[in-house]
Amino acid sequence: MKAGLPPAPPRAAGSWLLLAALVALVAASFASLPLQWAAFFTPEALTSAAEFLEGFTPPDTAPAFLAKTFWALWETLAMSLVGTLLAVIGGMALALPAAGRLGGALRGLTRALLNVLRSIPELVWASLLLVAAGLGPFAGTLALAAHTSGVLGRLFADALENVEPLPEASLRTNGAAALAAFLYATLPQALPQMLSYTLYRWENNIRAAAVLGVVGAGGLGQMLKYHLSLFQMPSAATVVIAMLLLVAAVDAASYALRRALTR
């Protein structure tokens, strides 16, 4: 211990027990799963994988197919944008009661609803909504909005609860209305973090939108499922490349926006 520094506080016994339980859980997970690492690296497995990947070359670069792929790429991007926008609206509406700003009773009920929304994966939401909305991007957009509303609602509520309450209390003491005090004191403190959460979820929704097409929700995922089911590997390779380019572009745009917001 360096001179002049206070001793580090002792760790509670509960923290060590929790750490030991996590280590035991990880060890039990490895022990219970039939992980056949040796079979994965056998010459036969490597040869089969190489032959499978060789079928993807060269990618399909026919102009008509590229135009079709570009349209599916735009459909996937649009699904993620609209789904994220709807989730921001729904998440913000649910975050206010979840943060306890509309009463203690509503806080528990709203947080339970947020748990349900985000506990159901996007693929399950899409499968349910396809029955009501039919095949196509509409069901995929609603599935992204439903799941992401639960995620953003919880994150927004936590951000609102963690802000410094003194500025809003000072405005209320000086006669400001509750809504005005919230908009001018609390929301500006939480807004940068909320915007960061939104951009991060948009990145995730791009990947999710590309996968939702597997159940018929449109976009690149639906094209990929179609061509893979027909063993049209060069066409599937073009779709995979389009997915990679879209995800990389959105990641770069999100990173640039986050940098701009934090300056």
Rank of each mutant, 00 (worst) to 15 (best):
L106F: 10
L106R: 12
L106D: 00
R107N: 10
R107V: 03
R107A: 10
R107S: 07
G108N: 08
G108K: 09
G108E: 01
L109W: 15
T110W: 05
T110C: 05
T110I: 03
T110M: 04
T110R: 07
T110G: 03
R111Y: 06
A112P: 12
A112L: 15
A112S: 13
A112Y: 13
A112Q: 09
A112I: 14
L113Q: 07
L113M: 11
L113R: 08
L113W: 12
L114E: 05
L114Y: 11
L114T: 11
N115M: 15
N115S: 15
N115C: 13
V116E: 06
V116R: 12
V116T: 12
V116C: 10
L117F: 12
L117Y: 05
L117E: 02
R118G: 00
R118N: 02
R118L: 00
R118I: 00
S119H: 13
S119W: 10
S119F: 11
I120Q: 05
I120P: 07
I120S: 06
I120L: 13
I120H: 07
P121W: 11
P121G: 03
P121N: 06
E122G: 04
E122W: 08
E122A: 07
E122L: 07
L123M: 14
L123F: 12
L123K: 12
V124T: 05
V124D: 03
V124I: 11
W125S: 00
W125C: 00
W125D: 00
W125A: 01
A126D: 02
A126T: 04
A126I: 02
A126G: 05
A126C: 04
S127E: 00
S127M: 13
L128W: 05
L128E: 00
L128M: 09
L128S: 02
L129I: 00
L129R: 01
L129M: 03
L129T: 00
L129Q: 01
L129C: 01
L129E: 00
L130S: 03
L130G: 02
A132C: 06
A132K: 12
A133H: 10
A133S: 10
A133L: 15
G134S: 04
L135K: 14
L135A: 15
L135E: 07
L135Y: 14
L135D: 04
G136K: 09
G136R: 09
G136M: 06
G136D: 02
G136W: 06
P137A: 15
P137G: 11
P137M: 13
P137I: 11
P137Y: 14
P137C: 10
P137Q: 13
F138W: 09
F138Q: 06
A139F: 05
A139P: 08
G140E: 03
G140H: 09
G140P: 08
G140Q: 07
G140I: 02
T141S: 11
T141A: 09
T141L: 12
T141Y: 06
